[in-house]
Amino acid sequence: MVMSQTESAFANAHPTEQDIAVSIRGVSKNYGAVEALKDMSLDFPRGQLTSLLGPSGCGKTTLLKIIAGLLKHDSGEIIVNGKNVTGPGPNRAFVFQDFALLPWATVMRNVAFGLELRGVPRSEREDKAEKYIKGVGLAGFENAYPHELSGGMRQRVGLARALSVDANVLLLDEPFSAVDEQTRRKFQEDLLSLVANEKKTFIFVTHSIEEAVYCSDQIALLLPRPSRVHEMIRPQIDRSKGVDNIPREPEYLDIVDQIWASLRAYVE
């Protein structure tokens, strides 16, 4: 991954003028008697990272999978790049919480798997995969198998796979929850430089308040029972202060506190 010091990812972000990459309009989803999502509406600006933050069980994964087209919603619309979608499409790529790597395939085949399914010829897809394997810092591991990699490296494979299909919306479901804290921090930095460099829209599910505040251009705070968007927060953190200093910034701490105040009632 390009490890350049993160610039301010949203120095030029003017949300009202920004076009909207993904839009959720009045989406509801029930699992039998369980109301997972109720009449939810949300906009995801293009080129930005939006976090879905909330206690577990509030429907984050459900929403993300509906956007991915992996789950059917009961009512409402999902609009991606101006078009109503009902199933998976080439404009969205998913990064899974449990990585979803093929244990019988090498890193190379795993990264190229999305392209393989799209019918890209072998040499072409391997060239492309090679590039993204390098990009996520796994050069030299092309022929390794997933069980030979650490949790963090496995998720890099999942990330490279999602990047290689060149979708303009990336959906990440708690991608860092299964990796250790140190790796996680590194990942967050990498994610920010991706947002800055790749001109893609990121929808990022997390349950970590700090992570959401640190990484996001906007945070949708979801609350359960009934599941709804409680609040939209635009952290506006000045990231030029550097990774190590941000957690000490008063604005950062204020936002974390404010979110915690909203959430605390639900985590008892």
């Binding site: 899974f96 449990d98 799209r118």
Partner: peptide, 25 residues
């Protein structure tokens, strides 16, 4: 399930899910 979903999210057809995911798994 997540491997099948992964393939689906990359637009795999049903027979591809069978041949490339289910049978090897």
């Amino acid at each position: 399930a997540s491997m099948k979903e992964m393939a689906k999210s990359f637009l795999a057809k049903d027979y591809e899910i069978l041949l490339k995911i289910i049978i090897p798994a």
